[in-house]
Design a protein around this nucleic acid. Structure first.
Lengths: 203, 203
DNA sequence: TCTAATTTGATACGAATGTATTAATTATAT
DNA sequence: ATATAATTAATACATTCGTATCAAATTAGA
């Protein structure tokens, strides 16, 4: 889907529009205009607004999976802590490169309708359960404090990674900082790792 | 505004509707119906949808301020760490009791329009700057690791507190857990404090 | 080249939206 | 009691929305 076909241009436009305005806030006319095409093309290629939205979510979750598993071939040769550091770093870079996914998820979580159920059943549940399993193992290996409930741990770690990029428009407006610049992302990785993960010598 | 006047019923209904559907997702008809009154009452008491929304935000930020400063009279007699623990706990309980505020803020951050600018200038900037100042002091006192940028620290700590309640609909749906129950809130306070704040003996 | 399938573009339609207007009702004060 | 103000209710209007329809244009295959 890297070509410049109308279908792919529509998908990219839809990522931007749904990511910046949510489902109900974004209109098919807006998407068609951004893709330099016509409203009829959406009906032809994706049949409806909802189907287009689902295609966007499928695409972004594929990218998420790729990002998280990027270095998984090296994991067996890493320490438990380095494994977590690596996946955390890759996850944070994904959050910075594709902030639209977390915005879409949050929009739907807030609305709490049928689309959230679809999201939960088709993508989020699997993602969270895998994260929970990994987190539990890391916890057993002393990477995270052992007394904390895994579920709370997962949501704390995930939100700590995401939030700065979700709030990017505000950070830009209030502090003039572009959190998407590479050094800012690295800085955030350091902050999350230093704050959430036990130091090696504390084990 | 604790009475059951039409104006106050409208405000309460608007908190719920804007909190659960965002600004563009919520309609004035929906609000009027929830308040058991008529759409004309909104125009009369609040003149427009946008003014009603601003009243909702003003109200919720007042509640936030009250919640955070609840025990501030005791702070002088507390250790720096206990001060942070106290304000963190009160903030987390606020996030659980008024999840609508963070949902509204996130909705607007995602949309990144005029309402976000209003939010930033009238409420958020002040709130974040105060948090940053407090956080810096706590950091100097060894409550947080000293190497981390204060801005990252603030956003990590805030999101760690908020996110579980923002994601409540998903947590309920996927795990059957009601994060708004008192023991779940306490559990989250423990998790955040244990994970983010240095132990006393680590100073 | 000619035909058939694919893709694109333009317009129409009912539903829902925020706002404005005006009438009906209730409350207040003299 | 009565007049004046305050509040509530009902309706109308222009706009925007997602969807559907259908003609025009383009492409692909024989």
């Amino acid at each position: 889907m890297k070509d410049d076909s109308t279908k792919s241009k529509l998908l990219k436009a839809a990522i931007s529009v749904f990511g910046n305005h949510g489902y109900s806030g974004g209109s098919v006319r807006q998407i068609a205009e951004l893709a330099n095409t016509n409203i009829g093309a959406i009906k032809y290629h994706y049949s409806s607004k909802e189907q287009l939205w689902k295609s966007v979510v499928d695409y972004l979750f594929t990218k998420l999976s790729e990002a998280i598993l990027k270095d998984s071939g090296l994991w067996p040769s890493m320490s438990p802590r380095d494994r977590v550091v690596n996946s955390t770093k890759n996850y944070i870079f994904f959050c910075a490169n594709y902030p639209e996914l977390n915005r879409i998820i949050l929009s739907e979580t807030i609305q709490n309708g049928d689309r959230l159920h679809w999201l939960a059943e088709n993508h989020m549940r699997f993602f969270i359960e895998r994260s929970t399993a990994w987190m539990a193992i890391a916890q057993e290996n002393g990477v995270y404090p052992r007394e904390i409930s895994v579920l709370n741990l997962v949501f704390i770690a995930m939100s700590a990674s995401q939030n700065l990029f979700l709030m990017a428009p505000f950070v830009e407006h209030a502090f003039g900082i572009d959190v998407f610049k590479n050094d800012q992302i690295e800085k955030h990785v350091d902050a999350v790792v230093k704050l959430l993960l036990n130091e090696a010598e504390c084990l």
